[in-house]
Design a protein around this nucleic acid. Structure first.
Length: 593
RNA sequence: GCCCCGGUAGCUCAGUUGGAUAGAGCGCACCCCUCCUAAGGGUGAGGUCACAGGUUCGAUUCCUGUUCGGGGCACCA
């Protein structure tokens, strides 16, 4: 509908004398939905935009454009208004045709080939496998999954990926924490390191280890803690009781674990922790309706030598230098605020080095477009990754980083405290159990990603019109219910008869509903290309509202066969669009509520 | 100190590459079921689009500055 009008305008412009047009190819033609029905259905500001280069008044230019417009069966009239708006008034038939489109295409309605099959990779969540996902990760999961769904729906070939940080210091700290909890279970007594992972899940894995292997991994606490750097110990209020170096303490503890256990046994514990947690994350996300094409291992990346290869490439390009015993990347040459270490004084490469290698590898896998969904706290990371890609001669514009702001939970109007330090954070699983997957998926994407999210748990659980999820689902259930009632009342449905009498849909509420339905493909397009799932969420609420209003005002199951079938077609088309939209959001569309 | 995000109705937020009279939900005040699910619908009140400049036919939208709130500034991952 929209593209049809844009085509008409393009043809009109081509018919104009060239001195009225700017040099080069025609600009994109602005065309928007009007806010006010008295301004027609669509309005274009093309005359306002081109008036300057055409060196004439906007209204005069508009008149010449309108005079050159080809006739269209969908357009009933064209007006020039205000400073030079070109307003299009569509025929009722143009809108009514949308019902047939929807019923014909079914679950494919709204999908398009805009992406032209181009390959896009969406990497999201990628939380460290050192513990269960918490509610912050949930937003990234729901957002990333929906962005991926939308891009797929508009014709991209989408690859969903989770980057598993299974190498590095944090994983070793997890392994050491696991071992220490195991030792506690064996009966050893000691002070648990302040920088260790304290969550209950670590203890659960430790118990599993004990049940399966008894005391095969036991060592004496006295032996382990002998001659370690002093840990820093704090009381419950966070005041330092015994000063010390908690970083040195935990690192020494990791080293001690490796020596006392020996590499094979240490490895076993390490893998046990990693795999148990990763399995849990995988299950958690799958239950949340979030599935991946690939789980990409950081360790595997390092094992293939990709990190070294990347460093060589940076060196060859002349952007590496040594200072203070470490190896630095000159990211400041590409707009980063300072240079970054890629290889530490101790010879180990940094996480950043792996990340450069990972992104280079993404490009080498041939994706046309690479999207990272990150927490807002990673924003400082954007310039340096792009700098590295640029330094290696890659096009940084092929990479988009989408930063998602934090989510804060509210219960009874009060903020729910979350603290990772104590290990008492609210997990995604707990949230899903409390409010359900549907509400969680919807609430996570209802705000644009740059906006902080206040997640109202009570609202998410409420079953009323206040809750947008239930409101939309209820509209869908009502439509299903109407169809059921049809047979109870002894009617039968004739879709063709309904199509033949769409002209009977002349009530203002029916027209409003038709307009809403016709907007769906446009909403999909902008939501996908701007990666803004919230647009779809808001649209669905508006569509549900249009239906509820109509439903309250007019009966579908009237005695007039032609009118009844036309209204049924309209209602079922509405149900189809709600179903399609909710599916993209990962929300169910129940038949009965 | 520097960087990122935000500031729109009492509250939570939309606002379509700058457009015509700035919208929705909640809350508040009323009204609507002998009728397909009232888990719903309708009416009304409610605004200095944080503030000050600038760009232009036109700015909530773009630019600069100020201010308030959130986050980030490791040889951690």
């Amino acid at each position: 509908m929209k593209t049809h009008l844009q085509n008409l305008l393009a043809q009109a412009l081509q018919a104009l004398p060239s001195e009225l047009l700017p040099d080069g190819p025609l600009p994109a033609i602005p065309l928007e939905r009007t806010r006010d029905r008295t301004h027609g259905d669509f309005a274009s500001t093309i005359a306002l935009a081109l008036a300057k280069t055409a060196r004439c008044k906007p209204r005069d230019l508009a008149e010449r454009i309108v005079a050159a417009l080809p006739a269209s069966a969908q357009v009933v009239k064209v007006e020039i208004a205000g400073p030079g708006f070109i307003n299009f008034f569509l025929t009722p038939v143009a809108y009514q045709a949308i019902v047939g489109d929807i019923l014909e295409h079914g679950e494919r309605f709204g999908r398009s080939q805009l992406g032209g099959g181009r390959r896009v990779q969406v990497e999201f969540v990628s939380a460290n496998p050192t513990g269960p996902l918490h509610v912050g990760h949930g937003r990234g999961a729901a957002f990333g999954a929906t962005v991926a769904n939308l891009l797929e729906a508009v014709g991209y070939q989408v690859h969903r990926e989770y980057y598993v940080n299974d190498a590095g210091r944090q994983m070793n700290i997890l392994a050491a924490s696991l071992w220490l909890r195991y030792l506690e279970h064996c009966g050893e007594k000691f002070q648990f390191p302040s920088n260790g992972y304290r969550g209950e899940y670590v203890r659960d894995i430790a118990i599993k280890l004990y049940i399966e292997h008894g005391s095969a991994y036991r060592a004496s606490a006295q032996h382990i803690f002998a001659d370690l750097p002093q840990d820093e110990i704090r009381d419950e209020k966070g005041h330092v009781v015994t000063p010390g170096d908690k970083e040195a303490h935990i690192d020494a503890l990791v080293e001690r674990a490796r020596t006392l256990l020996g590499e094979p046994r240490y490895r076993y514990i390490f893998e046990l922790g990693l795999n148990t947690i990763l399995d849990d994350i995988r299950d958690d996300l799958a239950e949340f309706g979030v599935v991946y094409d690939e789980w990409y291992s950081e360790r595997a990346l390092a094992d293939t030598g990709a990190v070294n290869k990347t460093l060589h490439r940076l060196r060859d390009a002349g952007y590496l230098y040594e200072q203070d015993g470490a190896l630095w990347f000159r990211s400041s040459a590409f707009g980063d605020e300072k240079d970054r270490v890629v290889e530490r004084e101790n010879g180990q490469t940094t996480y950043f080095a792996s990340d450069i290698a990972y992104h280079l590898e993404k490009f080498e896998r041939g994706f046309d477009w690479v999207i990272d969904v990150w927490g807002a706290d990673h924003h400082g990371y954007v310039p340096r990754v792009k700098a590295a890609l640029q330094a290696m001669g890659e096009d940084p514009d092929r990479l988009d980083m989408l930063l998602v702001q934090f989510a804060i939970l509210y219960r009874n109007g009060e903020r729910v405290p979350m603290s990772t330090r104590s290990g008492e954070f609210v997990t995604l699983r707990e949230l899903r159990q409390e409010v359900g997957n549907d509400a969680a998926r919807f609430f996570y994407v209802v705000r644009k990603s740059e906006q902080h999210l206040d997640f109202d748990l009570d609202l998410a659980k409420s079953q009323s019109k206040d809750n947008p999820v239930y409101y939309i689902q209820y509209a869908h259930a009502r439509i299903s219910s109407v169809l059921k009632q049809l047979h109870d009342k002894g009617f039968s449905r004739d879709e063709a008869r309904g199509q033949a009498h769409l002209g009977r849909l002349t009530e203002s509420h029916e027209e409003a509903l038709l307009v809403a339905l016709s907007r769906y493909p446009e909403v999909m397009e902008t939501a996908a290309l701007d990666h803004e799932p919230h647009q779809l969420a808001h649209y669905l609420r508006e569509l549900a509202n249009a239906f509820h209003t109509y439903y309250n005002e007019h009966r579908v199951l009237v005695d007039d066969d032609a009118l009844r079938d036309a209204r049924l077609n309209l209602s079922l088309a509405t149900g189809q669009v709600i179903r399609n939209g909710l599916a993209l959001l990962g929300v169910s569309a129940p038949e009965v509520m």
